[in-house]
Each structure stands twice: as C-alpha cells, then as structure tokens.
C-alpha cells in the first residue's frame, strides 16, 4: 500500500496483528459463576472481552494475550487461567 504523504495512518488498523499468539495461559470462563459486573471487560488491556446483550462476556482469543488480570480481579472467581496447549 502506497505511503500517504506525511505517513498518516488509518484508524483501528492494528487489528491485523493478532496478538493471541503471545499467550501461554488462556482464560477459562465459567458463565455459571459470572455475576455480570463487567469488570473484566472494563479492565482488559487488549479489548478482548466483550459484554453480550445479557451482560455475560465473550473472549476474543485472536487478541487475548493471557495476562490474567481478568481472572485475578473477577469478584466471583468465574475466570481461571489455564495453560494453553499448543
């Protein structure tokens, strides 16, 4: 793709870079325990936890880096970090 003069870049284009490959640990979500507080989604540094219409969450494993903040902060232990088999 040719350079735009000045090196101006289109928005949101890091989405081509799937950081899911960085993971060692993967979040395992137990919806039964989830109290729908939305904290994990708010905290995720990689925008990889989205709230559904019912306020549960879905994980985007294309980008999740496996940091474990969601699991560490979940007030109802609904997320567990497990070693990812590759």
């Amino acid at each position: 793709m040719k350079i735009i003069i000045g090196g101006v870049v289109e928005p949101g284009t890091t989405r081509v870079n799937k950081t899911g490959g960085w993971r060692n640990f993967k979040p395992l979500y137990n919806q039964d325990k989830c109290i729908k507080c939305g904290l994990c989604s708010l905290l995720c540094p990689d925008c990889s936890i989205e709230e559904t219409e019912e306020k549960y969450v879905v994980f985007d494993f294309d980008f999740c880096k496996g940091c474990g903040i969601c699991a560490n902060e979940c007030p109802s232990d609904a997320i567990e970090m497990v070693l990812e088999e590759k």
Partner: peptide, 11 residues
C-alpha cells in the same frame, strides 16, 4: 484502543 497493539500483557 483497537486490539493488536504491542503493549505487554497486562500493560
């Protein structure tokens, strides 16, 4: 931020 950035895990 859009995902795919190069921040460390837990940044």
């Amino acid at each position: 931020l859009a995902p795919g950035h190069r921040g460390c895990a837990g940044c």
